[in-house]
Design a protein around this nucleic acid. Structure first.
Ligand code: FES
Ligand code: FES
Lengths: 166, 166
DNA sequence: TCTTAAATATGACTTTTGTCATATTTTAAT
DNA sequence: ATTAAAATATGACAAAAGTCATATTTAAGA
């Protein structure tokens, strides 16, 4: 028997969210990336966006997002202005960061550099059984997380080549 | 100031283990995969291996591994025999399972089929900004998790093409 | 049959991650 | 100056993942 308790609107909504999938990103990082990219496309120095207006379009719990935005702001990934007419935005310099910078701020550094199975560094000379299956593409993926700027991603979005997910 | 308390030998050892890296596998799944592959190479119907003799060579905490082995056994991924001279082993049929079967038993099903960023299914028609970077290789990887049998992996290990990590 | 060696079941506990709420600080506008 | 609207700091709490320990069950061998 499944027991469900409805406490608040948010906890109800969270039932609809799919959690904990194997994507190498923590939920927090995913949320943060979505927020940053949304800001990249929709905000600017003089068009700031409030936390609560950001939460809905990217489908992230408002209170949780608030916390993430604060971490991103502290980490220099996004900019903000307090008070009335305040909000969050991406400066030109902010947009030069990479997505790896985003996850480093949210989840800490050095999460991507080890073997799929072992505790050692991934090593082509003594590959684990999954190395050849995963490693070439994996390192390419990690490389673009490290190299492509947020600005580049937002250009792709503006050109309609890729889409910002809910 | 870092405060470290040494409680037991195992909790000391666990300090040496690298935890929580972004590899799409949970620690439990990684441990389970290592255990299964080790059994595939080193055990047979009439050469069973005890839990405690398995823990050391694959560098997994003994008590934790015990629990995983029990789940794997219940899930039909590995075989076991109780009592003196008992232990764990892989039958011929066991070895026909895939690594995806292993992680399904340990972490539950349907962990691999969603977009890196969104809650929707990954969708080539409306790709998220990371889709093209990750998806082609990712689906190939997932496909071989689903198709290659444990037997095939163990052959590769026996041929010295790949190695079982600590 | 008794003893002993093994897996099994069960669950307590810890750490990490995810979630939500609230008091404080800053600043624009009146 | 005062007010109100925003971010910020802080932390309580919940859920999931990881870790460890112990009592029970099964079966081999004396
Ligand atoms: S050695 Fe395991 S992924 Fe490279
Ligand atoms: S749409 Fe996001 S990974 Fe495919």
């Amino acid at each position: 028997m499944t027991k469900v308790i409805f406490k608040t609107k948010n906890s109800f909504l969270s039932l609809l969210r799919i959690k904990y999938t194997y994507t190498m990103f923590s939920n927090s990082s995913k949320y943060a990336i979505k927020a940053v990219l949304f800001l990249a496309v929709n905000s600017s120095e003089n068009h700031r966006i409030m936390g609560k207006d950001l939460a809905a379009p990217i489908n992230v719990p408002q209170a949780y997002l608030a916390k993430l935005l604060q971490e991103l702001s502290r980490g220099g990934i996004i900019s903000s202005k307090k008070g009335p007419k305040g909000g969050f935005f991406l400066s030109k310099e902010n947009a030069l960061h990479t997505l790896m910078d985003v996850v480093n701020v949210i989840d800490g550094n050095d999460k991507f550099n080890s073997c799929l199975l072992s505790l050692e560094k991934c090593n082509a000379d003594k590959p684990c059984p999954l190395h050849d299956l995963a490693s070439p593409s994996r390192s390419k993926f990690i490389q673009s997380l490290n190299q492509n700027t947020i600005d580049e991603f937002s250009t792709q979005i503006e050109q309609g080549k890729v889409f910002l997910p809910l």
